[in-house]
Design a protein around this nucleic acid. Sequence first.
DNA 1: TTGCGATCCCTTTTT
DNA 2: GGGATCGCAA
Length: 833
Amino acid sequence: MTNSFDDIPFFDDAPEEPAPRRSAASPAAAAGLGIAARAMAARDGNRAAMEYLSGLNPEQREAVESLDGPVLVLAGAGTGKTRVLTTRIAHILATARAYPSQILAVTFTNKAAREMKERVGVLVGGAVEGMPWMGTFHSIGVKLLRRHAELAGLRSDFSILDTDDVVRLIKQLIQAEGLDDKRWPAKQFAGMIDSWKNKGLTPPDIAEGDARAFANGKGRELYAAYQARLRTLNACDFGDLLLHPISIFRQNPDILKEYHQRFRYILVDEYQDTNTAQYMWLRLLAQRPQGTPQNVCCVGDDDQSIYGWRGAEVDNILRFEKDFVGAKVIKLERNYRSTEHILGAAGHLIAHNEGRLGKTLFTDRVDPDDEKVQVHAAWDSEEEARAVGEEIERLQRGGSDGKKHNLNDMAILVRASFQMREFEDRFVTLGLNYRVIGGPRFYERLEIRDAMAYFRLVCQPADDLAFERIVNTPKRGLGDTTIRNLHDYARARDIPMLAAASQITETDELKPKARKALFDVIQSFRNWSERLETVSHLELAEQILEESGYTDMWKADKSAEAPGRLDNLKELVRSMEAFESMRGFLEHVSLVMDADKNENLDAVSIMTLHSAKGLEFDTVFLPGWEEGLFPHQRALDEGGRSGLEEERRLAYVGLTRAKHRCHIWFVSNRRIHGLWQSTMPSRFLDELPAAHVDVAVSESNYGGYGGQGGGRGGYGQSRFDKADPFANTHSTPGWKRAQANKSDATRDNWGSRSGHAVERIGYGESGPRTRTIDGELVAKSVADTPSQFSVGDRVFHVKFGNGNVASIEGNKLTIDFDRAGQKRVLDGFVERA
DNA sequence: TTGCGATCCCTTTTT
DNA sequence: GGGATCGCAA
């Protein structure tokens, strides 16, 4: 059977030997190389035409021009890493060292791949279209696997399962083993398999101990059963996209050799994030027999290694020189992004980490007007969102520099995605445009997954998971009993469920009603599969959704979401336009999973720190710098010291995203799992240097609100001045007002705003509070001064109620609360009972 | 077989 | 707090 992937010619788009020469017949030249072509001409003497090299600093230029032999570029944040990579590609093409199709350029994320493609496109023009080997590890893995699928026991039209499918599949296996799927959650086992795969381990490689850890010692068998099941489904998971090629290369040296000849240049972005499997994959492709050039260039930054939890091995970057003898190591330390304050803060913070290669970023751009990194305190996450929103509006109207700022230049970077919600809620009420990056994704929506299951099954009839998903959606009277029958029938004969369904309708094993319903479904699928070749995939998609009754199902649905779902389905069909075939579309979706339809809207970006890596913004807001959230408790529990260091790198990534302004927030109270918890400022705040940081909270407390303070003070000042509760609540303790505020805050916008203003004054008055922040941040001095409390004191806390002080450590109290148990709290938050 | 209510569990990060 | 799953009843 042919499909669109077989259409890609193998080696005939570029001769293996000799290396390309500049000639009219050269496909590369014919492709119209733009600058590259001009630069080829330049090779004959006119070096000035190599304009893409000008503007590089000496280190960058060296990294670009060192084309022979292995190169490791240690590129700090904002030092022009992507520029080096893209220019290097342009340079390879321009000097006619290789055809576009002979360059393997690997990135970690889709976003990075997209950006690289764009930027290379700017340099070399249309030639970038001739670079099929530029993409993520996974997308390149698919490409390899499609070509050699049979060597992995698959057909080239295999499906790629996402996490959801995998979990459902494993759940079936666990149940089939007669195990209790509550005691042995499928999700957990899916995680184990994933981490095994990240380490490059196949079932026989699993150590005895690990194998025993799950399902009464059946872990290894279960893993093997899972792999076997994938094979019968003609499917693979994300990990397989790397593992299968690895074993194909290992077992077929001749194939590996073909790729060695093909890939003249290998480039790897974000090398510090590669896991063991990726590393094995890469080494197979990059390590050549002695005497052959190993033109591999890896770019990375050990200080930005933030994927250790996912199996990334920082060691990979550290042992590069051992793996590739004679490697040249180039450090990029000149930062072009951030102000000296931001760099100073970030550098001081990251210096607290031990195992690092040690780079120090510097910049020449010193401007006395540059704002220091601002640290703000808020009572709770709601106030945090409110204040950030106001700061954003302030910048939008015209910041301290009087300049009006675009929302596109601002981002809120959170540690965990649940933090996003509060900002979204707030921005909706403010009418402030925002976009969530990496949030709940289009293709993960229920209706989209259903529709996709239909498409998958049409293209790949062995896809049982898709079959099970939609066989009774919309409702066709095919319930659990029928499905289970069908399932058993299929398993017994080792055939796909769709085929089994076809057979079983010819017997009388099913009740007439179910039999009829099933028969109709199969007929539909037969029809659709036939049309695959004759009807355009766009039309076919529409027909499938119509004829299956799927759109009717939502039209009949009276719930609030139904119209939105119908819209999404339309959007889905529309987005298929960009693809040549349904298969091509399905592949895109399984790998990319996000629809990048954020047009030119001016909007604040909200995303996690992880997904912010590689991006930059004029103004960056970093909320939630509290112990337990950031650094995240789980990272500390599971990762210990190295977990903490990874969190610190995450903080470093966050800070270094900012070009001009960086605002950090921490709150005293945050709701976690629905419960309010008192929180302490993050230790990372202690690690920021006073020279580059302003504690904005005290300033706004005293200066901003009384009306006499002048200063650029607080946010939304004028609005609060009008608020009438101001006067009469002025003298009551802050926490009380905050508490009163909380009850009506969710409903009443204005109420919450005025309450908010009042709250903040309360902070200003509560001396310990302000000093605490200064003390935490600037020096440990406060921590050394004796607390106003002593052990045994009876105290009251707004969230936890009454309790007794159990121990004191500087300004941090451990309190045994009568009802809430033992908590650690800053002394500013309690008062004598 | 379906639909609804109750309960349970989880909440870091992603290809 | 909230989403997903489970169990029970119609």
